[in-house]
Design a protein around this nucleic acid. Structure first.
Lengths: 344, 344
DNA sequence: CACAGGTATTGAAGCGCTTCAAAAAGTAGC
DNA sequence: GCTACTTTTTGAAGCGCTTCAATACCTGTG
């Protein structure tokens, strides 16, 4: 069991074969097609493996067999739980198929993204999942043509042909606004920014659509923020609290939970409208901080795990039938989660 | 540049050699010891590599050379930024030495921890960094004796002999309390829990030590919470706010930033003491949410990146000089960060 | 111009495994 | 006991690279 290693080097298949009194090919069969080996031989080889503490060398296996069982996942920002959810989903799906997922954190650096893509390529992983810097997707994909199958998450590659899986932010915005309208709100405000971030502008478009559907019965104002952190929300909250009573919105869609949290906090501190009595507030992301905040926050949950699973399914399909595989663009739907902040 | 792949298979060194009109060994030299190759040959081979889009196979290289340039990092919980910091640090240090770090998220599951340790072992990575389930460290390390060098982070392995790098939580608690005392606070309260978590109880011990040093001039009360989330903090905050004015603490050490945030919020909402005028509050972790919260929170920053770097240094040293390496136990120091919540 | 002492290049052996055609061992039927 | 199969086992070839001893190619000298 334990590797005593009387000799220096770790045991190889040859050692196992010798000890079990079989040929090297038989040991290989025990590892890969145990059902083709006679039970007593199987037993003998397995004991030998245990006794020697033999650990097969994956590099050699992969090299000889021309296959790999690891999937590489290059993640733009692991500190964002959305991406970590994707990783979880990917792993679940991979595991079902006997594969493993290894993560590389590119940490929002284009350069590291390239380094890791190259690393996985050289490692001849079975396939690569890539959640890229949005600005960078095509560069990464085209640079070198990698040779490995790649599925892109959270970004639609422009020119390059590849499967991709994205979240429908427009729909998320729509769902959020729709929910407020359905519960009787008529003066909506959207808070978020910068609009150059496509998730933000997509969510805004969804809100617009919901408002447009109301045929003029619902108004919409926009409050742009520099970013989507709590501090931005607080600032916007103070701004809103300072409005003339007649101009106060009665429903606020924030581009992110942190922003919503900031708004609620500002209202409370600076004597703004009460949540949810005077105004409903809904965020986006289903941030952990949102579900046990003081006033539990309604929100739109991103389909992170789902995206990871879907991407992995696509990747495996592509790997397995390179011939007939047609690239797909999946657009997954977020989920509305209603909590106290929008329940009057 | 791009892989046209007239033939099916990706180009190998042999193809490059043929195209450049050199022997296969020369191509290898170009990759590994370019200075030993005549400039014109170098140039010729490099063009051939580019033209064919040759990407060397790391598995084969590693197998032949008997070395690897990847370090595996098995992380117990990537959603905790402390561990992500370690990963960042590890990567920085690894990069300096031409190595790469691949992450595996065990997601607080003992089983997955084992799976990934085994995976890295079979992959014959150069070494393994392990931030384990605290309860599980020895099992993982002993099961199989892995054969690879392992450095443990954030946990001290019991029986098993290995390097480890931990954070000094006791000191962190001491620094926090000391800071409050130094700024004139005399009635301290520690808020946190559960005490079965060694980081919590260690921090508490540090607070006790600082108080003890004051020779009775400082009092300490303890408010136990179920967990270290914001909601726990809010609950504790309300509890404190409800105390008789004479019993109010004037300095609060929270076991985590989220707890501190909850306390501050509760005070504000429920008309508790003002922060920092009436009471100083200090948290722990240097959580992002803490540094741009409404009242910027003083805190104790964990040496996450530092731990990752140190662990990687130890690992590389162990890999490089297996003979003379002596296992070490590093205990790194946290840093006090003073912001508004403790500045009166 | 031949020769010693570099410097470059060569290619066969081997890293630890999988595969696959061929050989050996079983099994059944008569 | 022999034939005709079927199931197991065998081991050489090869996966794509690094290495290293051997060879070829350069200088610069005497």
């Amino acid at each position: 069991m334990s590797v005593q290693n009387g000799s220096q080097r770790p045991p190889r298949m040859e050692d196992v074969a010798k000890r079990a009194g079989v040929a090297i090919g038989t040991v290989s069969h025990v590892l890969n097609h145990p059902h083709k080996v006679r039970p007593d031989t199987l037993e003998r080889v397995r004991s030998a493996i245990d006794e020697l503490g033999f650990v097969p060398d994956r590099r050699a296996r992969a090299l000889a067999a021309g296959t790999s069982s690891v999937i590489g996942f290059v993640v733009v920002d692991l500190s964002n739980s959305f991406f970590l959810d994707m990783a979880r989903g990917a792993e679940q799906e991979a595991q079902k198929h006997g594969m493993n997922v290894l993560l590389a954190n590119s940490d929002v650096q284009a350069e590291k993204e390239l380094v890791y893509m190259h690393l996985f390529d050289e490692e001849r992983v079975a396939g690569i999942l890539l959640a890229p810097l949005p600005t960078n997707a095509d560069d990464v994909l085209s640079a070198g043509r990698w040779g490995r199958d790649v599925v892109v998450l959270n970004t639609v590659p422009g020119e390059t042909d590849a499967c991709c899986v994205t979240a429908n932010n427009e729909l998320g915005g729509y769902l959020a606004a729709r929910h407020l309208i359905d519960t009787g709100r008529r003066a909506l405000a959207f808070v978020g920014g910068p609009f150059s971030l496509s998730p933000v502008s997509d969510r805004f478009r969804g809100v617009e659509r919901a408002v447009a559907e109301s045929n003029g019965h619902v108004s919409l104002t926009t409050i742009k923020t520099a970013n989507v952190q709590e501090v931005d929300g607080r600032k916007a909250g103070r701004q809103i609290a300072a409005l003339d009573p007649g101009e106060l919105p009665d429903g606020i869609v924030a581009a992110a939970d942190l922003v919503a949290l900031g708004i609620v906090q500002a209202f409370r501190t600076d004597g703004g409208p009460r949540v949810p009595a005077d105004v409903s507030v809904i965020g986006y992301d289903n941030n952990r901080a949102a579900w046990d905040s003081d006033v539990p926050l309604s929100t739109v949950a991103q389909p992170g795990e789902e995206m990871g699973r879907a991407a992995t399914r696509l990747l495996l399909e592509e790997i397995r039938s390179p011939g007939e595989h047609r690239h797909q663009r999946l657009h997954l739907e977020p989920t509305l989660i209603v909590r106290q902040s929008s329940t009057r």
